[in-house]
Amino acid sequence: MDLALVVAFQVIYSIALLVLISAGLAVVFGMMRVINLAHGEFMMVGGYATIVAVGAGVNIYVAMLIVAPLTVGILGLVIERLVIRFLYGRLVDTMLATWGLSLLLIGLATLIFGNTTTGISVPIEGFPIGAYQVNGYNLFVIVVTAVMVVAIYAVLSGTRWGLIARGTMQRSDMASALGYSPDRIYMLTFFAGSALTGLAGGVLAPLVGLVPTSGTQYIAKAFITVISGGASVIAGLLSSATLFGLVSQIFTFSVNSMVGEIALLIAAVILLRLLPQGITGRFFRGSM
């Protein structure tokens, strides 16, 4: 019984982790049709922002939940103005340019922080379920992710900005005819997506030894989670993260984590072969 509970907890955690690392990418891809291959490096920057802020005496929660998203959000804003906005509608070119950005950011981080591992300690103690010790910080990650998803949903469906943004993504010509500037909407959306990515980087900072190349381990997973999910931001994200989280955990428990990772990747290949438009291209159509 306890074991089942622990396993369930672990599965939920791995799903939450996928959602967390993919959310920023999903917002930017789902709403703007931009694939940001520097996504992993945005997370890396969020991680460094957190560590530097904590080093400067900022409370760790403030650093993770406020400093990191703001830093990366602003970085995203700058990049959108300087690079991305010239490439809207050219999916492949954006992918290439953001790939270049990711290399650039890795290079800059190496220049500033050096090629060494830095990290901060986990601020939450573990707690027991029956005979098993459970990582308390994992629970924190799950909670943050859940709050984040609810917040994204609330913003998209409940606020004026969310409505305008969704309208712009569908018919930017109509939105501009109604007096909204698509340029500004895109800018704000990219800012929001980047901030979410920064949040993920901040929250994960205590869990990983950060190096300038840390981002690369996230990008592939985030990338396939988002693409497999399809065009709907929330439904796509949740459905593909659930699928991949389950698959990888099943194989992690029954073999080892290496096989779990490979199983996740193979599942993605098979999924895209069967559903070339992603999960929400076939199911949950028209959802958000």
């Binding site: 340019a97 270049g100 950005l101 290079g107 220049l111």
Partner: peptide, 17 residues
């Protein structure tokens, strides 16, 4: 002096643009 990744990334961004 400089990390080669940095230059490579810069070249890629600039050449796409």
């Amino acid at each position: 002096q400089f990390d080669s990744t940095l230059i490579l990334g810069l070249i890629l961004v600039l050449s796409v643009l």
